[in-house]
């Protein structure tokens, strides 16, 4: 089974965050399994469970996210799902 990863996006709310981020995921053919988003005191928080990118594309993906981070002043992270399972489940 393909591994899944958790993508989180945090930053000041503005137009087009979801569009930008999900477009990137589509470019890398990463399916989204679950998505949730809230706005807390003007702060946009989104979490997604996605399929992982192809092994050789991770660096490119991280770079693309970095560009979005600087352009839109966001913090984006992507981490394999296992680590959350390990830390929070016995």
């Amino acid at each position: 089974m393909k591994k899944r990863a958790v993508v989180t996006v945090v930053g000041k709310d503005q137009v087009g965050i979801i569009a930008r981020v999900t477009n990137v995921l589509a470019d890398y053919k990463m399916n989204i399994h679950d998505i949730s988003q809230t706005i807390l005191q003007d702060y946009f928080t989104m979490m997604m469970i996605v399929d992982t990118a192809e092994e050789d594309q991770i660096d490119a993906l991280l770079k693309t996210f970095e560009t979005i981070e600087t352009e839109m002043n966001l913090t984006i992270s992507i981490q394999l799902e296992d680590v959350f399972q390990a830390m929070h489940r016995i």
Partner: peptide, 17 residues
């Protein structure tokens, strides 16, 4: 088992902050 949002946030907070 799905992971709760609070748990995801906790891990991210631990790493980033």
């Amino acid at each position: 088992m799905t992971i709760a949002h609070g748990e995801i946030q906790e891990t991210i907070r631990m790493v980033q902050m």
